[in-house]
Write a protein that binds this DNA or RNA. Structure first.
Lengths: 350, 350
DNA sequence: CTGAAAGCGCTTACAG
DNA sequence: CTGAAAGCGCTTACAG
């Protein structure tokens, strides 16, 4: 461990004094490539400087540096909630990648509340972050437009909006994978628990599913798509609506989120239906729980860590003045017991 | 939203120039109590300053301020993993409380790896955080001692070590509550899935359980306590060990963590045992899943948000030079189906 | 190759 | 009540 020995932190000036040279020389050396002196000083001086810096455990004061360079090397991250496993994992990716590039990341929760999003962004900006990674973008609203107009550097993560730079899972593809899987298993009557309509994750997964389903020859109407909250309660409520609609129940349910899927599974059970037997269930995100449930849940695996890492790379490019294309990382389907068997015969028979 | 209008951020000097007064006067006003001028300037000047500051959306540069004040208003938080629901929720509490007091929090993962803990602490210190909230303290190791010696201000959260300031759940009490509950339900043969021995959470919950169990007249030997990882795989493995030990299986299992409990439930099922019927299971933390499982899990509810908030209050006191006592917040038991029925008769009969 | 100065935006005694 | 200066720790042209 470095510095803070005895309370006093060692500064550039301390090193210079001890070496009998000018602080600017020390600074120059410490900023030149780590082996060559690179015109910053003589080979000999450079070595003495680096040697002493190591010995004294010198670490530059980032606050002071940023005052001059006008860069804080700070990244602000906004997520709906950090206690959402999906966002927590993406944040781990951010944190790793940021550290590798000499950046530090801040994270704050917005609870998907537009006012809170603005408040948190203001806090981040007041802290003078170099850029923002926004993990809670809404398809509606004018926030992103305003940020653009104000030239605040940002990228989206997890959810995308139009052509703003973003790092997401290819959610359309994810939805398609589920459609193909359920179709192959012989299902013909399906419902979608679609999530929140303001989130591209929900919209894309749903539309990917529907368009692929139809292209396979399947039928699905608006009634078969239920928008809901992303949590277990939301999934439970949506499933209840589907099961009590008066129509024959679907033989398969696609919930665009594992938590919603778990809620739906609970509701199916309450109606005396066996998951994986009477009704197939598929979730999304492949959170660590999915595989551990009593009836393991089929789920679309999304590369969450990589999405976080990608977001950091994109924001770097934005900071360099580029306009990177949205990046959509490929998901894969993890088939488990909740949807492994073929559809009930009565249905296949039709 | 404030500042960053057109790229240029408004500074103290800008305000002063526009008002035709000295920057120091502006600074003084902005630091005096929000209504009275408080000797900083005349009532009239103060009003003009505040008015313009609001109008221009002035927000002081914290980097510049910290350079003078030698305080960054930054808090460093280290956790094993943010994707652990328990820590994520505690962090939400930290974030809230920190914001209320004008602080911002950084969080980093250590994966409970001693080397990584040191590395992350160094990164935090290099960023010049005012203090540290350590959520991954190990009972062994010399890290805390070293931090103390170096006079780095810190408090522990979630896990405690000796008399260092800490904000935790009262885990001993939590263990006792479980012992009482299982005893009352008529269980006499119990096992504990005890978690990691380096974590006070594991040790305290286990020891609270054991001592209360014995004080009630119960018998429990070292063989009945299995140390394990905190995750589902750990719980599963521990349960397997218990069920294949050759002894008659216990009628109740206390896992010191919900995830370990879920793993154990899976293993019980694999052995043809019905949770809540043949074997009671109790977890710890009452994570959002517990209540949503097909067989809802009895769990000790720990006030995670409050623990995070308390950690912030404690670090503030440490920063003021005080030495606050460890704070242990009270848990409550949430009884659910996994342990709601009485112990199997054969056992009660003994 | 190295020194010296200026300045980033702020705060805080110190005068008057 | 208000101004002026100094300085926090750093970086970066500019000389020489």
């Amino acid at each position: 461990m470095g510095k803070v020995n005895g309370g006093r932190t060692v500064t550039l000036k301390d090193l210079a004094r001890e070496l009998g040279i000018h602080p600017s020389t020390v600074s120059r050396v410490l900023h030149s490539g780590s082996d060559v002196a690179k015109g910053a000083a003589s080979q000999a001086t450079a070595e003495r400087v680096r040697e002493l810096a190591r010995k004294r455990g010198y670490s530059p004061d980032p606050q002071a540096a940023s005052l001059r360079t006008r860069q804080t090397k700070l990244l602000g991250v906004i997520v709906p909630r950090l206690s959402d496993l999906v966002l927590a994992l993406m944040y781990e990716g951010i944190d790793e990648a940021a550290a590798e590039m000499g950046y530090s990341a801040f994270v704050m929760n917005s609870r998907d509340d537009p006012e809170e999003q603005r408040r948190k962004i203001d806090l981040m900006l007041a802290r003078r972050v170099d850029g923002l990674i926004i993990g809670d973008a809404h398809l509606d609203g004018s926030l992103l437009q305003e940020l653009s107009a104000r030239k605040v550097p940002f990228v989206l993560m997890n959810r995308r909006v139009q052509e703003y730079p973003s790092a997401t899972c290819d959610d359309v593809l994810g939805g398609e994978l589920v459609a193909e899987h359920l179709w192959e298993k012989g299902h013909r009557r399906v419902s979608v628990i679609a999530g929140e309509p303001y989130a591209s994750t929900a919209v894309d997964r749903t539309s990917g599913f529907i368009s692929r389903w139809r292209s396979l020859g399947g039928q699905i109407s608006d009634d078969d798509v239920v928008w809901s909250r992303f949590d277990t309660a939301g999934g439970r409520g949506a499933a209840k609506g589907i099961l009590t609609s008066g129509k024959p129940h679907p033989t398969a349910l696609f919930a665009v989120n594992d938590f919603a899927a778990i809620g739906a599974m609970g509701e199916l059970r309450s109606h005396g239906l066996t998951v994986g037997q009477d009704v197939a269930v598929v979730g999304y995100n492949d959170t660590s729980l999915a595989a551990e449930l009593p009836i393991p849940l089929t789920s679309v695996h999304s590369p969450m860590l990589d999405i976080g890492r990608t977001a950091v790379h994109l924001i770097q490019r934005v900071l360099r003045g580029e306009q990177p294309e949205p990046a959509a990382l490929k998901p894969t389907l993890r088939v488990r017991e909740s949807s492994a068997s073929r559809a009930p015969a009565e249905v296949r028979a039709r």
